[in-house]
Design a protein around this nucleic acid. Structure first.
Lengths: 185, 185
DNA sequence: CCCACTAGGTACCGATCGGTAACAATCCAG
DNA sequence: CTGGATTGTTACCGATCGGTACCTAGTGGG
């Protein structure tokens, strides 16, 4: 069995994503992690601290995707781009998708919350990664293209939980068409 | 002074949007409405009932925009479309924008919550209104165009509160370019 | 073996949550 | 003016919240 801290973070991650940060109490998390509240508070100073750790874990995992992508296709930006689109498709067709966990958390958290900075930094890095990807793939206007793709993706994720499987289900095809038709240098 | 029910709904709307549904207690809402908890519970059976009324009000206001749009430009779908884009720009450049109130609420609410149905119905109507708008303006593929515009808009709104004013600030220009370049019949 | 460190368990704290009972004040129609 | 309906006030309920004190049970390294 993994050490308590990992179990707590895993449980928090599952519950926070499924039910929202404010709807889940620390006791519930501790029980789901097969431990208790005291052990939770030995590893996290407060619930807010746990939420921040939750955000950091999500951000680290998101960043890891880009490292994996670069490692898998070190000299082929177009394949790398294709790999990213495949990843997007994987997310958007997941039956349990409930939107971007970090965006959802940002909705619930007050502007001053420690997790907010983590989330905002991550979203900015994500956009930069997209710009670099389009730049490497020799698209003519990588900035605009990155913004467009970024917003389409974010919009699709938030729309899924608003019953809008309509627009979201077609976004992958839209993405591929967009990338096919966008002008390249 | 407006009757209590209206004041309560107005206060709930302000507080729910600024701080989130779960972060605001009924007592706070009653005080902000310059009344008290008992009066609130005389007009709303429960907090969930108030949240559902909140969602219904947002939906009614969103629907009213389309009626206004149709009334202002009864015989000119292109001007109507232009009016809608102006409205989008107005929203996205608002300093107090914190995303779509209904999408934010959906993030916080469990799938079975009475407000969820209101929100999902509204989003579907919104998409249909967009399709009709593009169809009236004689675009070649109104469905795809509506999805694209819908997702760009939703993505921009959710991105604003993730510190991503980067992508969101350029979305209006992207929208106008997209509509200029999209093929028409 | 032993001792320090970590985890588990329980009981508890004050605060706040959504929601209600009972009663006084107010207001408006007939 | 009067009487019924609506509102205001206060106090309260049980439940749950985040967070802590205290003690016991392991457990691993010297």
């Amino acid at each position: 069995m993994p050490p308590p801290r990992e179990r707590i973070l895993a449980a928090a991650r599952d519950l926070f994503y499924r039910h929202g940060v404010h709807s889940v109490g620390v006791e519930t998390i501790a029980e789901a992690a097969q431990t208790n509240k005291m052990t939770l508070y030995r590893h996290f100073r407060s619930k807010d601290d746990l939420v921040a750790a939750y955000a950091r874990e999500l951000a680290a995992e998101g960043d890891a995707l880009w490292i994996t992508l670069a490692a898998n296709y070190p000299d082929d930006p177009c394949r790398r781009l294709q790999g990213w689109v495949d990843h997007v498709e994987e997310i958007l067709t997941n039956r349990f998708e409930r939107g971007c966990a970090m965006a959802n958390a940002a909705v619930e958290l007050q502007p001053g919350h420690p997790a907010r900075a983590v989330i905002e930094d991550y979203k900015q890095r994500k956009r930069e990664n997209l710009v670099r990807l389009f730049s490497d793939a020799r698209y003519r206007d990588p900035e605009t293209l990155a913004d467009e793709v970024f917003l389409l993706f974010e919009g699709a994720r938030i729309s899924i939980q608003c019953g809008g499987q309509g627009p979201a289900s077609r976004v992958v095809k839209m993405l591929r068409d967009l990338l096919d038709r966008a002008p390249r240098a």
